[in-house]
């Protein structure tokens, strides 16, 4: 990306901070963030994972389907840049996938097959605790130190946004909020399954239906998913077909 203009960067931070308002939807927020970070790169896609109280990472949001797959591969095969960033609490930058098969035998070949050439990952940190990681998957994207710092700052902003807490004094607040965030992702997956079955579509198509319905009606993604899972079997008419 080679250092973004200050104007663009300022807009980005304001946009991210602007979501810190009443009607907050954690999954929507993280999706917006991944898209904005991806927008910083010419060809990058971005995915984000959070950890639960037992330090198990879960997929939360991605800028597109390919980035979601990259996150899921890491979880499935137990290796990859996000897992490293999470474990070490340090960014992983400029790793060439062609040379990373030894390091990530499960992830690297599959990511290369999907057309990616290089990866980066950034820990999501709050003080000493690491609560997740954000991965950037691209084609020959070189990050210099200034770039890496910008992306890391955005990751730090994400944590603050995630917590929706003006003053985070105690670890217990963090864990409680995380618990809610992780669970809201589960609700969305359940809603995808319900719509997939009821409409005879794939879970991914179901997600598109849910998301588009939320946008058209100016409703929050989490709220629509919540309606779907609780109003079973009276599924709301999502339209779109």
């Amino acid at each position: 990306m080679t250092t973004v203009s200050p104007e663009r960067l300022a807009t980005l931070f304001v946009d991210v901070a602007d979501t810190l308002v009443d009607e907050f939807d954690v999954v929507e927020f993280l999706q917006m963030l991944t898209r904005r970070v991806a927008g910083l790169f010419d060809t990058g896609e971005v995915g984000l994972m959070l950890a639960d109280h037992r330090d198990r990472l879960t997929f939360m949001a991605a800028s597109d389907e390919s980035a979601r797959l990259m996150e899921l591969f890491q979880l499935q095969y137990g290796d990859g840049p996000c897992l490293d960033a999470f474990r070490t609490a340090r960014p992983v930058t400029n790793v060439n996938l062609a040379a990373a098969t030894e390091k990530w035998p499960g992830f690297a070949p599959r990511a290369a097959l999907a057309g990616f050439e290089s990866v980066h990952a950034f820990p999501l940190r709050l003080r000493k605790q690491v609560i997740g990681a954000m991965g950037v998957f691209g084609s020959s994207t070189e990050l210099d130190d200034a770039d890496a710092q910008i992306v890391q700052s955005l990751a730090d902003v994400a944590v603050i946004g995630l917590l929706q807490e003006r003053a985070i004094r105690r670890g217990e607040v963090l864990t409680g909020q995380l618990q809610g965030a992780l669970n809201s992702r589960v609700v969305i997956e359940q809603a995808k399954g319900i719509v997939a079955q009821a409409r005879a579509v794939s879970p991914d198509e179901a997600f598109t239906l849910i998301r588009d319905f939320a946008r058209r009606n100016n409703r929050r993604l989490g709220e629509v998913a919540g309606t779907i899972v609780t109003s079973l079997p009276a599924l709301p008419d999502l339209g779109g077909r």
Partner: peptide, 13 residues
Amino acid sequence: AELFQAQGMVAVQ
């Protein structure tokens, strides 16, 4: 993710 999707699908089935 797939477990939760399957859960939703089975609930409808």
